[in-house]
Design a protein around this nucleic acid. Structure first.
Lengths: 386, 386
DNA sequence: AAACTTTGTATATCGGTTAAACAAAGTTTT
DNA sequence: AAAACTTTGTTTAACCGATATACAAAGTTT
């Protein structure tokens, strides 16, 4: 059944609360911690001294007095360990080494010439190892590796299907964990992006947000009450394949009228072919130089994006929609079309609460979210997830 | 900040676990409880004796021995109190009195001649009072009133907008709580339906389900991990106004191509007008008597329903979709169309996990869900929500 | 210099769980 | 039928963590 309660649980809860507070609001004194958490001063003292023992927190010195003894200020020891985040994309692999606060220490980008698992896996493992070697000495070393994959991943870390990589049934988690001898977490690319933006980017104030990864296809990372919505099998978010036109354009999934046939980068580039444009950067340049045709194409794709976003807004009533991945680069050209269509197609009460923004971590949402996944797994060992 | 942990919290957690276990699996002995919850025998003993003290549990006598002392069997005292659930619909009001286990003890149905709050509220209050008077004597009496409204309700129990009732900004929770001097909970009709089916109906095994209230419009109660997904403002689920056809039929919301213009009871009856049919029952009769035209209409509406359901399946990866409200009556005529379209339009992995069923409580999903809402509020006072 | 404030630790108490012992009430074996 | 074993449920002691309170340390203000 459920986890029952005992003193250990209580301690876990409180210790997590204290650590989380230090992470977010530091520098902080024990007295302030007691004040803001509601925990007794003595309790905070013992928990903090344990955290110091564990090298997760340290004292930075005395703070300003407000009419009495000076407080001892505490800081989260962000370099107590390091994490590795990977974005396993279509023809590339982006990997970063971060400290426990998500700050990038080192970065690698690798072009993937082929996509079979037999080729990709060794490259991936080598890249990760090279980053791990680059990690500074620290009490905990590399605490884990998080990987975001553009595909359907189950809760055991098996890639069930990744259309762009042409992978089926690849037991990524098991294979990598064995190879690297490190804790490995596997997640969907859009979910990782959502996590990344929520922790380190534009989604830090939102609790119900939807991160849209708009690239070759469209995937969504749905966050409800601060947590990723996984769905039963762990593959919620395949929103690119929702129908917005009953008898619309054919999709690779075998269906007709899928949203991503109208609103993805791929759809945009398809429409831009007559202009002799093959890459998004090129189309942006054209728009910048005043090409009305290019601008029209952006407006069209913006409208299609807006339509699907309005559907999300009506269904999930989020407070924030974040547009991420490649399409962030088109922000100046699509923003107003999106806003307009969302306003016209969503219900007033829902529209009022929903902000629409672009991912602030740019191309790094997924990679940082993956790193956070690893960090989070490390912390949840003897802590509780809030 | 968050709730910190102490012994009281631990006790709350464990007591809730024990009570919940007795509710669901009774009759049960203390030894069995200890076994299944993992709690120590002594702990279970003290918790159970408190629950007995509180009249929520009682001993029914000795059970079968399995080679030792006979166990004392415990039962949940479902008549320790009663709850009232109300479904505030378009031209009617359905209200039930239930025991704490959701069993209906008494029922009232009232036709509403007019829809203004000034008319409806007194009728509602009188109906509730009459049901409350009908409640048998019990330790806790009527523990609360839950109301499901076909409209947008905020988290404070104010009906922001109910198109069919033509209500705007009606502070239902406050007004009723003052009038009735009872705890009142207000919820959306589809959310209540989802709760009802999840607790007492076809959704008891599912943890990620979507209840579709298909009537005049289409609303969804989305359940994620056993909990209603509220959205930021509390009005998630307005899925009837998602676009499935970019330039489709005009909708009362001012938009074009809304799902409910194709898949609701209203849409069906609109299409049935040429047949001289004005009510769903009539159309069902026609289909039963073999009218190919009527059957065709059902197939069409089934296909439209299937399309939107496929969108839900791809987006949320639920394990169960429940079709409720009026459209349940059309099950034999629409089921296969729905299944077919969902299968063709949703992704294989998602489809495999998603069952599609019809609400098993029929017209009582909402009213029972509302009652459960009230029961749940009563229990969460000195317990924790699991 | 005296009085007040704030910080952080130490100590006693409290409330809850657990483990272990045990009594009560069975069944099985001989 | 007695002895041996089993199962149930209570009791007791020990433990653990939080809280309240007192207090020491280290400031600031008057």
């Amino acid at each position: 059944m459920q986890t029952t309660g005992d003193q250990h649980l209580v301690k876990k809860i409180n210790k997590t609360i204290v650590l989380e507070a230090i992470k977010k609001e530091s520098p902080l004194s024990r007295a302030q911690l007691s004040e803001m958490t509601g925990l007794n001063k003595g309790t905070v003292s013992t928990l903090v001294s344990e955290l110091i023992e564990e090298k997760l927190v340290y004292e930075i010195g005395l703070g300003r007095s407000s009419g009495g003894r000076k407080p001892v200020m505490l800081l989260f020891n962000k370099t107590a360990g390091y994490a590795i985040g990977v974005d396993l994309g279509v023809r590339y692999l982006l990997a970063v080494l971060t400290d426990l606060d998500g700050k990038i220490v080192s970065e690698r980008q690798v072009e993937l010439e082929r996509s079979e698992a037999g080729y990709v896996l060794p490259v991936l493992a080598n890249t990760v190892r090279s980053l791990a070697d680059a990690a500074p000495d620290s009490p905990y070393g590399v605490v884990g590796v998080g990987i975001g994959v553009a595909g359907i991943v189950d809760d055991k870390g098996t890639v069930l299907f990744a259309p762009n990589l042409e992978w089926r049934q690849v037991e990524l988690q098991r294979l990598l964990a064995e190879e690297l001898e490190l804790p490995v977490t596997i997640g969907n690319e859009a979910n990782a992006g959502a996590l990344g933006e929520m922790q380190y980017g534009a989604g830090q104030e939102a609790s119900d947000l939807v991160y849209l990864s708009v690239g070759t296809g469209i995937g969504a990372g749905i966050v409800v009450g601060g947590r990723i919505l996984p769905g039963t099998g762990g593959f919620a978010g395949e929103i690119g394949h929702t129908t917005i036109e009953q008898n619309g354009r054919k999709c690779s999934c075998g269906n007709k009228g899928c949203w991503e046939q109208y609103a993805s980068e791929k759809a945009l580039l398809e429409a831009a072919k007559p202009l002799g444009v093959e890459r998004l950067g090129k189309l942006v340049e054209l728009a910048e130089s005043g090409s009305t045709e290019a601008i029209r194409l952006f407006h069209e794709v913006g409208e299609s994006l807006g339509l699907g976003i309005a559907n999300i807004v009506n269904t999930l009533n989020p407070d924030l929609i974040l547009i991420g991945n490649q399409m962030t680069r088109a922000e100046p050209w699509i923003r107003s079309s999106i806003e307009r269509v969302v306003t016209s197609r969503s219900l007033p009460f829902h529209r009022k609460q929903a902000q629409i923004r672009f991912a602030s971590l740019d191309t790094h949402s997924t990679v940082l979210g993956s790193a956070y996944d690893a960090i989070s797994a490390f912390f949840s060992k003897d802590r509780i997830s809030l």
